[in-house]
């Protein structure tokens, strides 16, 4: 191999700190963090980015992202990001929120941030369960899915139907880009990365609200090993939460 040289093709992005995460083995939060960090690196945005961590398993995300970060109250990240962005239009703002945070307690804030066309980027982690509090039913828990607060499986007659947030938010005129991806295999992880890149480009161009929903695993609370959990996303979540772009305005298409 005299005529070959070794090239670095994959390394830890600068927008992540060196901190070890507290996430369980196989938790896809780590993948989502990395994709966001890579996007910030590639677009050269790290130095002017402000992030908002949620309440939930990613509550300590501010230790992992190498950007200025604040910690929001449960569900209020879009409001906090709105305040930051309005007072600092030159900054890049992202929130990182789980399904309990975004689709339950923060449903009001996310709808209005999207409706206003708030020029922020939302990374929405949907793992169909409350992770940090120990596996309770989430607004995205599937029918029949057993959780510690739906021990017989989610009963639609009691708890109603799971919310499809990307579909819901895509109906709002202020939403410029809304996409749902999945982290269950490398092919989909690469697609999710592209969506995240697009979302930040939308914000850079000032086109309005952008959100990328990521179907994610919670092996611990689903009571599965990491590999099994990724399979569960593919077999159970993807059919109910179909993947793809839900809102791509003409301005976004022309980016």
């Amino acid at each position: 191999m005299n005529n070959a040289e070794e090239k670095l093709v994959f390394e830890r992005p600068r927008s992540l700190t060196d901190a070890h995460t507290h996430y369980c083995p196989g938790c896809t939060h780590g993948i989502a963090h990395r994709l966001v960090a890579e996007a910030l690196d590639e677009l050269g945005l790290r130095e002017r980015t402000l992030g908002i961590a949620p309440v939930g398993c990613a509550v300590l995300a501010y230790y992992y992202f190498n950007v200025d970060m604040a910690e929001a109250a449960h569900g209020r990240a879009p409001a906090m990001a709105t305040g930051m962005k309005r007072a600092n239009p030159d900054k890049i703002l992202f929130t990182y929120q789980g399904d309990g945070d975004l689709a339950a307690i923060g449903a009001g804030e996310i709808v209005h941030a999207a409706g206003r066309g708030e020029n922020i980027t939302v990374i929405f982690i949907n793992n169909a369960i409350y992770g940090m509090t120990g596996g309770q039913m989430a607004p995205t828990t599937l029918e029949g899915q057993k959780t510690t607060s739906s021990p017989m499986g989610r009963d639609i007659s009691i708890a109603g139907h799971p919310l499809r947030m990307s579909e819901l938010l895509a109906t709002l005129d202020g939403a410029a880009y809304v996409a749902r991806g999945s982290l269950h295999d490398p092919k989909h992880i690469r697609r999710a990365k592209k969506a995240i890149l697009t979302a930040f480009k939308v914000q850079q161009a000032g086109l309005g609200f952008s959100m990328v929903e990521l179907l994610s695993a919670c092996g611990t609370n689903w009571k599965m090993d990491p590999v099994e959990a990724l399979g569960w996303i593919k077999d159970n979540m993807v059919p109910y939460f179909p993947l793809g772009d839900y809102k791509v305005t003409d301005a976004v298409k022309n980016l």
Partner: peptide, 12 residues
């Protein structure tokens, strides 16, 4: 998930 792998590839 823990970003612990660095990858190198041989190129011409």
């Amino acid at each position: 998930p823990d970003v612990c792998i660095t990858v190198y590839r041989q190129v011409p």
